[in-house]
């Protein structure tokens, strides 16, 4: 059969599929959607024939575009509904974190070792802090957590909790994303980001320990600390996972190792992002509010305990579906 005859014979059904796909591309609802799979299979056959019979580039390209378009619409994932959300937090996320326990432990150490070291160092020798915190930062810490700064938590009087929430979202979640992304650079970016945060926060806490209002600092930070610090650390771990795939791909080629690492890192990244959003909610609306200090402390301690239990035990009984 000549290409022109082949084209004439099938043109009608190709056109039908082309119009259907154009409508779907614009997000329209089409009447005879049930026809699309049938037309798709037919056009697949046509493309295979055209390729085999060497009907030429123009015809093959037209069919190629048509097959790809239909394939993309048929392959679109069905909506997974709210069950997926529950399942993610009940098992997928904690399981993904446990699977990465190596890098997660590494990142925990990368943050907490300098953090605690600096608080301890500052306790014995405050010079360490002055080496790190510039005078402006010290002044700011004085204003927020100094012994004399007595203005109480008045933010919500101005209705500013919401503004603080917005600020924490854009600032903290952006930093979180950036630490993750810089992990791709051989993991070095994430390591640097975590270590930097650890040292800097350690110095700030150390400063308040020596010359500030400790009660006030811990009352403010307690409730969201578990969400925020765990979230940062897990995001960094997800980045280091991908960075390590480049450094140490194991038995896979590097490109394949990165792809696999991406799959493993994705649930960790998604879950930790949700933790940071949670941290921003708590930090914006609860931590600065006038709730009694002991309640904030309780929530803070509970947060750490519950997260530890969650990551160690949640989803263990789920069958290996991942």
């Amino acid at each position: 059969m000549k290409p022109t005859a082949f084209e004439e014979k099938n043109d009608e059904s190709w056109r039908e599929l082309e119009t259907a796909l154009a409508a779907l591309d614009r997000g329209k609802h089409i009447e005879d959607a049930a026809r699309v799979p049938q037309l798709f299979r037919q056009v697949c056959g046509d493309l295979a024939l055209a390729q085999h019979r060497m009907y030429g580039r123009r015809l093959c390209e037209r069919l190629n575009v048509l097959v790809i378009g239909a394939y993309q619409h048929l392959g679109a994932a069905a909506r997974r509904g709210s069950g997926a959300f529950v399942r993610f937090f009940a098992s997928t996320f904690p399981r993904a974190v446990r699977r990465e326990k190596g890098v997660v432990s590494l990142c925990l150490a990368l943050f907490f070792v300098p953090f605690i070291a600096f608080i301890t160092a500052a306790y014995f020798e405050p010079k360490w802090i002055f080496a790190l915190l510039p005078p402006e930062a010290q002044a700011q810490m004085d204003a927020m957590y100094g012994k004399d700064s007595m203005e109480d938590f008045v933010r919500d009087k101005f209705g500013s909790s919401f503004a603080m929430f917005g600020f924490y979202i854009i600032n903290n979640v952006s930093i979180h994303f950036r630490i993750f992304a810089s992990g791709v650079m051989l993991g070095a970016g994430a390591v640097y980001g975590l270590g930097y945060q650890g040292i800097f926060l350690g110095a700030m806490f150390g400063y308040v320990h020596t010359s500030g209002n400790l009660h006030r600092l811990y009352t403010f930070c307690a409730s969201h600390s578990s969400f925020e610090l765990f979230g940062f650390i897990l995001g960094a771990a997800a980045g280091v996972r991908i960075g390590l795939a480049l450094v140490h791909p194991g038995r896979l080629p590097r490109v394949a190792a990165m792809r696999e690492a991406g799959k493993r890192a994705l649930p960790v990244l998604l879950g930790s992002t949700m933790m940071l959003v949670g941290a921003a909610v708590i930090e914006g609306f609860w931590s600065g509010s006038s709730v009694a200090a002991w309640m904030k402390h309780t929530v803070g301690i509970l947060g750490w305990v519950l997260f530890a239990v969650y990551f160690i035990f949640a989803g263990r009984r789920t069958a290996d579906e991942a």
Partner: peptide
Amino acid sequence: GIYTGLGTSLL
């Protein structure tokens, strides 16, 4: 109010 506007636009 300024804080609501600020919060919304930050988001």
